[in-house]
Amino acid sequence: MMLRRLNYTVLYIVLALLALMVLYPIIFTVFSAFMTEKEVSVFPPPLFPHHLYWGNFAKAVQTIPILRFLLNSLIVSAAIMACQAVTSAMAAYAFSFLQFKLKNAMFLLYLSTMMIPWEVTVIPNYLTIKSLGWMDSYQGLIVPFMAGAFGVFLLRQFFLQLPHELFDAAKIDGCGHLRTFFSIVLPLARPALSTLCVYVFLNHWNSYLWPLLITNKPTMRTVQIGVAMLQHEEVMAWNLILAGVSLVLLPSFLLLALGVKQLIQGITAGAVKG
């Protein structure tokens, strides 16, 4: 018993150290964001800010158009999220409840999209967006991602698990497919839809390469590109840079806090399927 208690103590100490290691870059970011310029300019900087200094956030917002970046990312990620929810739900409904010619072939075609990597499609897509005149536009950032096979599979899996009696009853009541889709399936699919939404939103909030290629104007940049540019502002003090980084991380943390269950469900759904 003594030995076991000792074992547990050792386990807690080891875990606490490991947690500190994993957490340190985030702690460093958040604490530095609250330090004054004087505090960060000494080496080594203090581990804790002496008091919470909010001025960095105001200054960061004034120096770079970070609010504009946040707005752009919010518009783009939210639009992609909404579009993917709609297109995926429609396709998943067709694959789950409708009979049509070449259904299996179409399903394989959808599966095959998961095999096409971005490095192969990125050059032609860039040229397409350029020739459409969509550089530096929301369309250019949104349209290529309005559908995704992952969402179709996730929702199809969920639809197929819904009780069959429900649909037989709806059919007997003379409920057509459109009404079944809107008034039975979609409301029931809310858990799976929210999983998909959290997953897609976070993915596109974090996306780096595509916005880097498609946007040049500062007013069209998304947060990830905007925050990466901070690094080149030689005049910028670290506390300002990290205040900017904290602002960008804030929505992700909020989303994680609110939707951690959904996110993990989404990831593990992918894991089980894969």
Partner: peptide, 28 residues
């Protein structure tokens, strides 16, 4: 009618895949 509805429901995602996945794959 059901077949047509099926393809109608697939149309949006299929269109995106054709324009931004299959066509670029070939063009690559």
């Amino acid at each position: 009618k059901e077949g047509a509805l099926g393809y109608l429901f697939l149309a949006p995602s299929l269109l995106v895949f054709i324009c931004f996945l299959f066509y670029p794959m070939l063009r690559s």
